[in-house]
Design a protein around this nucleic acid. Structure first.
Lengths: 198, 198
DNA sequence: TAGAGCATGTAATAGGTTACATGATTAG
DNA sequence: CTAATCATGTAACCTATTACATGCTCTA
């Protein structure tokens, strides 16, 4: 049986309250954007499916000057379906990690090229870390008293752990690369030209 | 312009030596499987494209009792294309992290349900860590002297850092959850029944 | 004799992004 | 006057997995 994860992501967002497709997209953006996102091309057809399957109901809010809002609310059946998925154990997933793939083939380019690549990756993670720290503070302030707070902070913490670990890995990797540079330089001084070859 | 990552992954594998589609699949399995993989449905059509674009050439090895081997080798143009991609800076990618999404909606299920989920995730990461440690030793032994060794160890190290960070996060998260349980229990002793509600 | 390994490939299907079409209102 | 925001949705297009088709050899 194929499980469409996007479906559960949308059920989850809807569990926070009734919303339109447009609202859902915005909600993804300002809540789980760091580890999940959906496009309109997924959201609108899936909302239709959720209604067809009885997981949500649609009500229409008339507006002037703007298109009508189609507001979706979870049904009891929809909440049960979400809960069923939430307690289902996650599986080991092998994501595609581009930086690792590029480095695996690192010998195909020069050492300075690889150093640049890792330094750039480190900058990305550094910016990410700052963003996550700011997010953590913002959530603590704005969501104080919200019964979801504890869980939300755990997911922010996930990001903090991963990002810190990546920065550490970058530092280790850069120092390992600098040692390789030093070795090559030594080789030159000793006149050992073999070590110069890639 | 759309860049097909699978194309570069295959060019990369081919940079290790001439190979058939079947070999490429096996090579993915025993080298980068922890962070990248490709299916036959991607490999065979892409190999055809690589030849059409002049990035690889195909030679046929006749065999008896088995189908002919179609062996692909990188051309100079193919190696250049790979190098061009390798030095191109990676972009920040937002992967889909299921455990984080589930926990974000954690309030929809019970605290013990969430604890079970994280404990299970921790076990997965623990097994992964053991596998990575074994892999590191194996690579150090079997690939001693291989000019790729340094880069390969850096990618294994990537996995080690991520996995250790995840285990740490699990421990922190589980202890945070246990504190929530303790709070609820205290509420019961004091007869504060409101705190029992989800 | 059943199953795994060798070896090619295609077709069906699922999953997902981007661009397009429409059109009023509001802020700079 | 321009761009953004509100708001719906669809169509075209990629990307990727799984199952299927074929068929020989070797091992348990």
């Amino acid at each position: 049986m194929k499980e469409n994860k996007s479906k559960y992501a949308i059920l989850g967002i809807l569990s926070l309250g009734p919303m339109s497709g447009y609202d859902i997209k915005k909600m993804f953006q300002k809540s789980v954007a760091k580890f999940w996102n959906e496009s309109y091309g997924q959201i609108y057809p899936l909302l239709k499916m959720l209604v067809d399957d009885g997981f949500a109901i649609r009500s229409i809010e008339k507006q002037v000057g703007k298109p009508d809002r189609h507001v979706y609310s979870l049904t009891g059946k929809g909440r049960e379906e979400l809960q069923r998925w939430l307690i289902e154990p996650v599986e080991r997933q092998i994501g595609r990690i581009e930086i690792a793939l590029k480095l695996f083939f690192g010998r195909q380019v020069s050492l300075p090229d690889n150093i640049r690549q890792v330094e750039h990756f480190r900058e990305i993670q550094h910016r990410e870390l700052e963003e996550l720290k700011a997010l953590e503070e913002r959530v603590k302030e704005e969501k104080a008293g919200n019964p979801n707070l504890a869980y939300w902070l755990m997911t922010v913490n996930y990001g903090l752990h991963i990002t810190s670990a990546l920065i550490q890995w970058c530092d280790e990797t850069l120092s390992a690369m600098n040692k390789l540079t030093a070795k090559t330089k030594k080789g030159i001084k000793k006149g050992n030209k073999k070590e110069l070859s890639r």
